[in-house]
Design a protein around this nucleic acid. Structure first.
Lengths: 265, 265
DNA sequence: AAATTAAGTTCCACATAATGGAACAAAATA
DNA sequence: TATTTTGTTCCATTATGTGGAACTTAATTT
C-alpha cells in the first residue's frame, strides 16, 4: 500500500491534527518563544488559518501566549507527560535494574527507547548530585550517535533498518560521529553480533558509554540501557569490562517484562 | 448548536482538536491501558469515528497501541514536555532560589503554577536522595488543598476567584481538606492578608507545608513556592517561622522575573 | 470443530468544521 | 499625523470529520 519506491514521503495523513502537530513541533523546537509573524513565515499557512490554529492550541493549553504575543510550549504538556511517564511499564520494570547498575558502577545509567529515528530517554539514574530532571528524561536524541540508539538499531529486522537508515540525515556532533549510513550499518552488524554497543564520544565530546539492547516480545519497546560518563574516567578497557554487567541488567529487564506482561503476546 | 442554558459555560470550541484532547485526557487519566471498547464506552462516540480519532492520535505518537490492542499515553508527549520544561522562564529564574531555600531548611521545596483550577508543579528540589523525577513535576494537583494552590488563589482578583470557586468540586482527601467554597474563601482572604499559606495535611495525611505566592507582572504565571515535609518533623510553629524565608525567596524570584522579562509589559 | 457472539476495521453519503482571501483593527514606525 | 507592520475577525467555499451500516477477525460457547 505504501508506494515507497523512491522517496521517504510517507506524508502524515492525520488531517487537522497533523497540521496542528506541525505547529506544536515548530514552537517547541524553537530556541526562543516565537511571535505570530515568525510562525507565519515558518509554517507557510495563510494568516487567518494560522491564527485560528494557534488559538485552538492555546485554548487547549498546548501552547501559551504571553503578554508580548509570544508563543511558548504549554504546561498542559507537562501534565500529559507526567502520566505517560508514571504509567510506562517498560520504565517501571527497568527501574530497579537501573539502580543496581548505577550502584555497581557509580556512573550514570540511562534507559531509552526508539521512536521513529530518535531515542527517547525514559529514565536516568545518577550518582550523588541532585538530578536536574528533565535534563535528559524525555529528550529525543539521534539514534545514530548514541549507545542506546545503536543498540536499538541492532534489534531491527534488515528491511526496517534499511528504511530507517535511508531516512536519516547525519549531523556531525563531534569528529567521531558517523557521517554515512554505510559506516553506521557496518557498526550495527558488529553490535548485533557481540550484543553491546559503544558511544565513543560520538554525540558529545568527552562523553563515552556502553549500551546493551532491550526489547519486548511484541516489539512495542525497542531500546536499550547504557552506562555513561566522562572519557577521562571511562577508558575503553573499562567500558569493555562493563559490557557484561550491562548485558546482564538488560537480560533481567527483559525477563521482568516477560513475567509482567505474560507469555500471551 | 450549543444549547447553553445559562450562558457562562464557555464550552471548549476547539472543534476537532478539542474532541481529540478529550480522548487524550481519557487515556492518560486511566489507571491502566484501555482497550478500544473501554474507550468507546467512556467517550460516547460512534465506533467508526472513535476508531479514526484514535488512529490519528496513534499515528502522531500521542497515544501508543500495544500488541494486545491497549491504548497508552504516547512517548512523544515526553519529548514535548521536556522542551516545555527546559525553556520555561519562570522555572529557570526560580531554580537557584529554590535550591537556596532547600539548603536553608533541609526540606523539599516545590514550585507550582496555576493552570485552570489545578496547580502544575514545575520543579522540586529534594534533599539527599536521588530524585524520582516525574514523581511530582508535571503533576496536576487541586488548588484548594495545596499550599501553593491556596497561595496562588490569593493572588486572583475577586471576580476571577469567584468564577474559579464556582467551578470547583471538592474531593475530601483527608479530614482537614476544605469541603466548601465558603471555608476556602475565608482562608484565602486570610492568606491574601498575611502573604503566606499553610497546608495542614489537607492533601495527604501527615504532610504539611508553608507556601508563598509568586506572580509575574503580566499574570502569565500565578503560582507559588512551598516547603513541604512530614508533620512529625514540621510543627506548625516551625512552619510559621519558615513563612519568612519562603516569602523572601518568593520576593527574589519576582525580582528576577522583573529584571529578566524587562519593564515593558 | 462448527456455531455464535463479541471486538475491531473499513466504507461512503452527508454534515460539520477548516480554509483562505479580504476587510478590519491595533501597534509600531516614520 | 501618515504610513507601515502586525494581529484579528468575517464569511462563502471546500476539505475534512462524521456515523450508520456492512464487513472481517478474534474469542467464546455449544
Amino acid at each position: 500500500m505504501n508506494s515507497n519506491g523512491d522517496g521517504m514521503t510517507q506524508a502524515r495523513e492525520t488531517g487537522t491534527l497533523g497540521k496542528l502537530m506541525v505547529l506544536l513541533d515548530l514552537v517547541t523546537h524553537a530556541d526562543a518563544p516565537l511571535r505570530f509573524t515568525d510562525i507565519l513565515a515558518l509554517a507557510g499557512q495563510p494568516r487567518g488559518t494560522l491564527h485560528r490554529q494557534l488559538s485552538h492550541l492555546v485554548e487547549e493549553g498546548l501552547l501559551e501566549l504571553d503578554g508580548d504575543g509570544r508563543y511558548a510550549p504549554g504546561l498542559r504538556l507537562l501534565d500529559f507527560a507526567a502520566r505517560s511517564w508514571a504509567r510506562n511499564e517498560f520504565r517501571m520494570i527497568a527501574e530497579p535494574h537501573l539502580a543496581d547498575l548505577q550502584q555497581a558502577t557509580g556512573e550514570t545509567v540511562h534507559l531509552g527507547v526508539l521512536r521513529g529515528s530518535s531515542i527517547i530517554y525514559l529514565d536516568k539514574v545518577e550518582g550523588r548530585q541532585p538530578v536536574r530532571m528533565y535534563s535528559q528524561i524525555g529528550n529525543a536524541s539521534p539514534c545514530y550517535c548514541t549507545g542506546v540508539g545503536k543498540a536499538a538499531l541492532s534489534l531491527l529486522p534488515p528491511d526496517s533498518l534499511a528504511d530507517l537508515l535511508a531516512g536519516l540525515s547525519f549531523t556531525r556532533f563531534t569528529a567521531s560521529t558517523h557521517a554515512s549510513a554505510e559506516t553506521l550499518l557496518a557498526e550495527i552488524r558488529e553490535i548485533a553480533d557481540q550484543g553491546y554497543a559503544f558511544d565513543r564520544e560520538e554525540h558529545e565530546a568527552g562523553i563515552r558509554c556502553v549500551a546493551a539492547p532491550v526489547w519486548s516480545e511484541d516489539r512495542t519497546f525497542v531500546g536499550g540501557i547504557s552506562i555513561t560518563g566522562p572519557a577521562y574516567r571511562l577508558s575503553m578497557e573499562l567500558l569493555r569490562e562493563w559490557a557484561v554487567p550491562v548485558q546482564l541488567a538488560a537480560g533481567r529487564i527483559m525477563e521482568g517484562m516477560r513475567i509482567r506482561l505474560g507469555p500471551r503476546r
